[in-house]
């Protein structure tokens, strides 16, 4: 009968006990790994709670909660015959279109310029049919392409609908790709340390920190554009800015992506500390559990984003 030998020094450092080593076909079950998986199990519940709340709020939202012409939550019963004018393109004569926007739509020059820079965009909302037709005709006479839109109501903003949904799917799809790249550099860092290639391990850790920071930077840019940088049509917000208090959709969006962003921030700080440690050469083929545990957390954050991107942005 074979007996387990006492643990060696590196194993003691990694909390590997002889009992743990009796699992023959798999890596050892370390207390750190068990603790991390338990923590991730609680995180699964946390994000399930957030996504579940989102689904309930979305499913329970009244069918007239959002519209293309009025701010979220507006009582639409007496406004059903009103119209809006959407400018699709300015055409060849930009200055003529600006002149029409100033005289017919009552915009100042700065507002008109800003509007033409973010087409398609609504020019006027909630106006009577004859006034909408007059504005439409004036814009088309100036060479622009404009459309008169009737009132459309939705229970929740639709993706790609610029009248009710301000989220940039293109930007966020790119950001999703960025986070996936950080996940692969993280696993390559662990792989390098497992092969005792410390230099490559440190380089991949640094890459993970930098790519993770890029993801965060893009998210901060997105938040800035939503809350301050852009002026959105009334179907998105009464104030023109997409902030947590403008609608249920906005508060759900900022809560879910904000909590995820906080997790990414925590991960970037953790990985920065681990990268600095790695420069001292402490992570080797026999001591990589810190990198492995941080990697588990980082991949979980990536996994959650895959779900959030699908649920919040694409659906």
């Amino acid at each position: 009968m074979a007996h387990a030998a006492p643990p060696t020094d590196p194993e003691l450092a990694r909390h590997v006990t002889p009992a743990a080593r009796t699992t023959i076909q798999h890596p050892p079950v370390t207390p750190g790994k068990v603790a991390m998986w338990l923590f991730l199990a609680t995180e699964i519940m946390f994000f399930t709670g957030l996504i579940g709340s989102y689904i309930v709020l979305r499913a329970g939202s009244p069918p007239t909660a959002y519209s293309n012409l009025y701010p979220p939550g507006t009582d639409l019963r007496d406004l059903q015959d009103t119209r809006g004018v959407i400018l699709k393109s300015a055409g060849p004569n930009r200055s003529r279109v600006i002149a029409v926007l100033r005289t017919e739509a009552g915009l100042d020059e700065h507002e008109a310029e800003h509007l033409l820079d973010s087409l398609p965009h609504g020019v006027a909302y909630g106006i009577p049919k004859d006034k909408a037709d007059a504005l439409h005709d004036a814009l088309n006479a100036a060479g622009a392409e404009a459309e008169v839109e009737g009132l459309k109501a939705y229970h929740w903003p639709k993706p790609y609908d610029t009248q009710t949904n301000p989220l940039s799917i293109d930007l966020t799809a790119f950001n999703t790709f960025i986070l996936i790249c950080s996940s692969v550099t993280m696993v390559l860092a662990l792989s390098a340390f497992q092969r005792d290639d410390r230099r490559k391990g440190s380089i991949f850790l640094l890459a993970t920190v930098l790519i993770g920071s890029t993801f965060l930077s893009i998210q901060v840019y997105e938040y800035y554009q939503l809350m301050f940088g852009h002026h959105y049509p009334p179907g998105i917000s009464a104030t023109g800015h997409f902030r947590p208090d403008v609608s249920l959709f906005a508060s759900c969006f900022f809560t879910m992506t904000g909590f995820h962003g906080a997790h990414v921030t925590g991960g970037v700080i953790l990985l920065t500390c681990i990268f600095i440690q790695s420069l001292r050469g402490i992570f080797t083929r026999h001591n990589f559990s810190t990198v492995e545990l941080a990697g588990l957390y980082w991949h979980f954050v990536d996994l959650v984003w895959i779900i959030l991107f699908t649920v919040v942005y694409l659906m």
């Binding site: 069918p63 059903q80 015959d81 119209r83 839109e149 459309k152 109501a153 939705y154 229970h155």
Partner: peptide, 9 residues
């Protein structure tokens, strides 16, 4: 109905 379009009844 969950979505309606103008002109509404």
């Amino acid at each position: 109905e969950t979505v309606f379009s103008a002109p509404l009844e």
